[in-house]
Nucleic acid binder design. Structure first.
Length: 224
DNA sequence: GACCAGGCACATC
DNA sequence: GATGTGCATGGT
């Protein structure tokens, strides 16, 4: 019960400060799938440029991506970094999407556990990317964990530092109602506060969650 | 120039 | 299962 209240309070703090984040910024579920791969280990702005380039060349389309060789695809998505790797990953996940009928509603009907398993079996789709695709492209209630989530949870001593991805995911899912809108917004808020305040451990002053830090860290933050 | 970003696979122990 | 490393552009 204690943890439930804590998590809801965190969400309220963030939401009242930042307002709705309206994730995922994309025009279609397919664009979200593509974006989820392109944003791996880079800033959203770099992934966004790559998506814009794909659009310019008419490549933001399942069939077009599959008929484009990886070298060409790589050129188009260069700005997102690790582009040769991402070109391969992109083709893999798009191939899966097409094999499943390229129909979001029908694919969703396969159910969360099976879809998560299938996505994780693809080379280039790890837990975070799989959960991002499931939540934001398919609207399925799975909580997305990322580095920022780890930073916030450990910094606030809500979990131990050696916590696993699945442990953090359970931490949220077992203490929040199973609500995709809430999962959607909460993760987006965590990324927002992460970018604004959790890049370095020192920068906490003015963070909406500052007052919820353990006391010694709070005084450190204010001094810094 | 160093460092990190809305990760992941693979090698190695 | 944990830890280390390559991938690579772009911004601070």
């Amino acid at each position: 019960m204690q943890v439930r209240n804590t998590l809801h309070a965190y969400f309220q703090d963030l939401h009242s400060r930042y307002g709705p984040q309206k994730w995922w910024p994309a025009e279609s579920p397919f664009e979200i799938i593509v974006g989820a791969v392109l944003v791996q280990s880079t800033r959203w702005q770099n992934a966004e440029k790559a998506i814009a380039t794909l659009k310019t060349f008419g490549l933001l389309d399942p069939a077009r991506i599959l008929e484009t060789d990886e070298e060409t695809l790589g050129l188009a998505i260069r700005s997102s970094g690790t582009f040769r790797v991402k070109a391969r990953r992109l083709r893999a996940v798009v191939q899966w999407f097409v094999d499943r009928g390229a129909d979001v509603d029908r694919i969703r009907d396969l159910g969360l556990p099976r879809l998560r398993e299938e996505l994780l079996a693809l080379r280039g789709i790890g837990r975070e990317t799989a959960d991002a695709i499931l939540l934001y492209a398919f609207g399925l209630p799975t909580f997305v964990i990322d580095r920022y989530t780890w930073r916030v949870l450990t910094r606030h001593e809500l979990v131990p530092e050696d916590v696993t991805y699945e442990d953090m995911k359970e931490f949220f899912e077992e203490n929040l109602e199973r609500d995709r809108e809430l999962y959607n917004e909460f993760h987006a808020q965590i990324v927002k506060v992460g970018i604004e305040h959790c890049r370095s451990k020192a920068k906490c002053s003015g963070c909406p969650l500052e007052s919820r830090l353990p006391r010694r860290d709070r005084t450190e933050a204010l001094r810094g």
